[in-house]
């Protein structure tokens, strides 16, 4: 590896490993020093906590008294715990509700924004992107009032046309609606921009050729645009999946994790039992969940990546 970088002017003498190492260090210590902050911070604040979580997941600990070793008990408990099951079920449901829309909406918006006749393109793009930079917590509070109780704005409007009022935040099924809409509202500005970037990278000549062949706009989209956007679609799939699996502010603010644990998300659950906002901290359980969740997330992402890669090579 290092032999590639040996200066050609140096007289040939097979250097010992140690000598080579010292010379590299002497020549390049500043290079290593300047990139070291990333590696140090990563090791201390991200890699170490993961391994610590693994260790903690085999212990029972409330953060105050001495921890005791309990083997796989935490995993056994967590996997049987109805609340955890509910949490995984919720996540699955959120994935089904959010991911398809989180991919389709940006694709449609991106294509519309890229249409050649469109005027005020910049204004549309700017306004659609605004939610991306705005405080999810602040807008979450607005959401809470929009959907909240009988006198919330949405219910007021609905009852005006003879519908409702619905208990958006109190009903276990309806409570999905504010979370899903807020998550989509907060994310499609960024994803639309990504799609737009992908569309602008496509060479217009391809479309010219297709048009000469008499392809309609829709078949152009299916046969040219979408295949060429495949890397972008993979990116959207992965980012939206991660977004859904790490939902926190939205359920915390809008429904406070209720009603009856319905929109309880993994991070919210881990936060609650780990910090002990409801009773004593259960650090062992939280760590077991942390580890399970990390593995699930990495597996999902890697699988999505591999599956889409394979299809590409077909």
């Amino acid at each position: 590896m290092s032999s590639v970088f040996v200066q050609p002017s140096a007289p040939y003498r097979p250097p010992s490993r140690w000598q080579a190492f010292r010379r590299v260090l002497k020549e390049h210590w500043q290079d290593y020093l300047f990139i070291s902050p990333f590696f140090i911070l990563f090791a201390v604040f991200f890699a170490y906590p993961i391994f610590w979580a693994l260790q903690l997941s085999f212990q029972k600990w409330d953060g105050v008294t001495d921890p005791t070793w309990v083997g796989l008990d935490n995993y056994r408990f967590v996997l049987r715990d109805p609340i955890t099951r509910q949490m995984f079920y919720n996540t699955f449901r959120f994935l089904i509700l959010i991911v398809p829309l989180g991919i389709m909406l940006p694709l449609v918006l991106g294509v519309l924004l890229n249409l050649s006749f469109l005027r005020f393109r910049g204004i549309f793009r700017t306004l659609i992107f605004i939610p991306t930079v705005s405080s999810l917590v602040g807008i979450g509070i607005v959401w809470k009032l929009l959907f909240g109780a009988a006198n919330g704005w949405l219910n007021a409007v609905l009852s005006h046309v003879g519908l409702g009022p619905y208990k958006w935040l109190k009903d276990a099924h309806l409570a999905q609606v504010p979370i899903v809409t807020l998550a989509l509202w907060g994310s499609i500005g960024f994803t639309t921009l990504i799609v737009l970037g992908g569309l602008q990278a496509i060479d217009e000549d391809i479309y010219d050729a297709a048009k000469i062949d008499g392809a309609s706009p829709f078949s152009q989209f299916w046969q040219i645009t979408l295949p060429l956007l495949r890397p972008i679609v993979v990116f959207l799939l992965i980012t939206t999946t991660i977004m859904v699996m790490t939902l926190f502010s939205q359920p915390y603010i809008v429904t406070e994790g209720g009603p009856s644990n319905q929109p309880l998300t993994p991070l919210l659950h881990i936060y609650r039992i780990g910090v002990g906002s409801t009773g004593a901290a259960r650090i062992g359980d939280a760590s077991a969940l942390t580890f399970i969740l990390s593995i699930v997330m990495i597996t999902v992402v890697v699988m999505q990546f591999l599956i889409t890669r394979r299809r590409e090579s077909d």
């Binding site: 979580a53 903690l56 926190f248 881990i270 910090v275 939280a286 997330m297």
Partner: peptide, 14 residues
């Protein structure tokens, strides 16, 4: 890597 936020508990303990 998506796992950043999942480590909030050991992060907090650290």
């Amino acid at each position: 890597m998506p796992s950043g936020q999942t480590t909030i508990i050991p992060f907090y303990l650290l």
